[in-house]
Design a protein around this nucleic acid. Structure first.
Length: 451
DNA sequence: TCCGTTACGGTTGAC
DNA sequence: TAGTCAACCGTAACG
């Protein structure tokens, strides 16, 4: 069943399948391959009453009771995916998982939720409780926490695109030079020299096979590189060593060249996607992301004009893509994005926060957040503790940007396990962030409504 | 009951 | 411009 939700200016089509107590369909589950055993009941062990399992955008409404049809968009059903054209007409829609949370298949959870997951984990809340609390699958919670523990970042990886080429013209030129200087040089020697000469580093040095291919295809007979060889030269491309891209993980979405930037309808020029690097090498380190503005802050900054300047399309979420990896040359990868974030999302200093330590860049324009999770906007997002406390809370700049349903807040608190608290405080934090500001959960202003 | 793992369908963007 | 590819995503279920 396709369920249409009108959430303010957005219309949502929400599939509702199992949260109402349906049994997962065998062979049609959202996750794994069909397995032989019988499906488990949904909400297994969730401990959530059905009403809680309903997304907030639905809960309490009689519509929620009607959302039992299976015909809605779902990853396993035809119609789960709309043609792009249709999406643009109808915008897009979320789906509802077994816990009642809204998600968009294939798209990362909003950073707010990711941040919340980490926050709650640092508060000692068990992943299973976080899962229920935020209505995110436990696998996702597990993944996000694991990633955070590993990389220090809550950010999703870069989606789409392809690995930047390492055989830039500059590299080819050097290879040619090496070969010309020593026709008997081996590919592995060239590789070593590329490293030794600083032409490449370990992250972007071509493989031996690549070098061999270059020698064979691009350089060929060095003595007479005919026009054919010349014509086979790689097209001019920015000398953007792979490592340069990923070394500075949070480049500005504004391309230095101004070309091909993710731009969205209604979004002024540069807002589209903020590039987050793929992890080759991992760029999710805390040190790389500290000081970067967050979408949360931007959300706060935009709160006043929300819904006007930014597209409501869900596609406009911050997709964390490679696409807009700009050449962050010559600019500190940490600072430049922040500076440009200022440009993009003017905001008062008061709205700055330390959540940047988790969310390096604005990947989720505010309106998108609302667009996708808004109903749930409140549903999902509970204001977290000031993080770091001294810098004010990233999620609640002036209490305006990230709203939270009061019921959720209460629920959030109920998931706190006091008995674990002491032990958890001893637990090394994945990052350097101070937790323990639990009281600030309740100290934050809670907007009455998120709609 | 919890949670790590994994298949799956989906999205994305470079090529 | 459309198709392909390979990365990522979150879900759901297994174990």
């Amino acid at each position: 069943m396709k369920f249409t939700l009108d959430l303010g200016s957005r219309t949502w089509r929400v599939s509702w399948e199992r949260a109402a107590g349906e049994v997962a369909r065998g062979g049609a589950r959202g996750g794994g391959s069909p397995r032989l055993s019988s499906p488990r009941p949904s909400l297994r062990g969730s401990g959530l009453p059905l009403a809680l399992a309903l997304p907030l955008c639905l809960s309490g409404s009689r519509d929620a009771q009607a959302l039992t049809d299976r015909g809605g968009p779902s990853p396993r059903r035809p119609g789960a995916r709309q043609p792009a054209g249709q999406r643009t007409m109808e915008q897009t829609y979320g789906e509802v998982n077994q816990l009642g949370g809204v998600f968009v298949n294939g798209r990362p959870l909003p950073n707010a939720i990711r941040l919340r997951i980490v926050e709650l984990a640092q508060l000692g809340i068990r992943p299973c409780d976080i899962s229920r609390q935020l209505r995110v699958s436990h696998g996702c919670v597990s993944k996000i926490l694991a990633r955070y523990n590993e990389t220090g970042s809550i950010l999703p990886g870069a989606i789409g695109g392809s690995k930047p080429r390492v055989t830039t013209p500059n590299v080819v030129k050097h290879i040619r030079d090496y070969k010309q200087g020593d026709p008997g040089i081996f590919a592995w020697e060239i590789r070593d020299r590329l490293l030794a000469d600083g032409v490449c580093d370990k992250y972007n040095v071509p493989s031996v096979s690549s070098i061999s291919r270059i020698l064979r295809n691009k350089i060929g007979s060095l003595a007479q590189p005919g026009p054919f060889e010349a014509s086979k030269q790689a097209p001019p491309q920015p000398a953007l060593p792979y490592n340069h891209i990923y070394q500075y993980p949070y480049p500005s979405p504004v391309s230095p060249t101004g070309t091909k930037m993710g731009s969205h309808p209604g979004v002024s020029g540069s807002t589209g996607h903020v590039s987050i690097p793929r992890s080759w090498p991992s760029a999710h380190s805390v040190s790389n992301i500290l000081g970067i503005r967050t979408f949360m802050e931007q959300t706060g900054a935009l709160a006043g004009s929300e819904g006007t300047a930014y597209s409501h399309k869900m596609e406009d979420w911050a997709s964390v893509n490679r696409t807009t990896f700009p050449a962050t040359q010559a600019v500190n990868g940490l600072e430049k994005p922040a500076l440009e974030a200022d440009i993009k999302y003017p905001q008062s200093a008061a709205s700055l926060s330390g959540v940047g330590s988790f969310v390096p860049a604005c990947t989720y324009p505010a309106s998108n957040q609302h667009g996708v999770y808004s109903a749930s906007g409140g549903a999902y997002l509970a204001p977290g503790p000031p993080w770091p406390p001294a810098q004010g809370h990233p999620l609640a700049p002036s209490g305006a940007s990230v709203a939270m349903h009061s019921g959720e807040l209460a629920a959030a608190m109920t998931f706190k396990h006091p008995s674990r608290e002491a032990a958890d405080q001893k637990r090394p934090s994945p990052g350097t962030k101070a937790s323990g500001a639990l009281g600030s959960f309740q100290g934050l202003p809670i907007p009455a409504s998120t709609a």
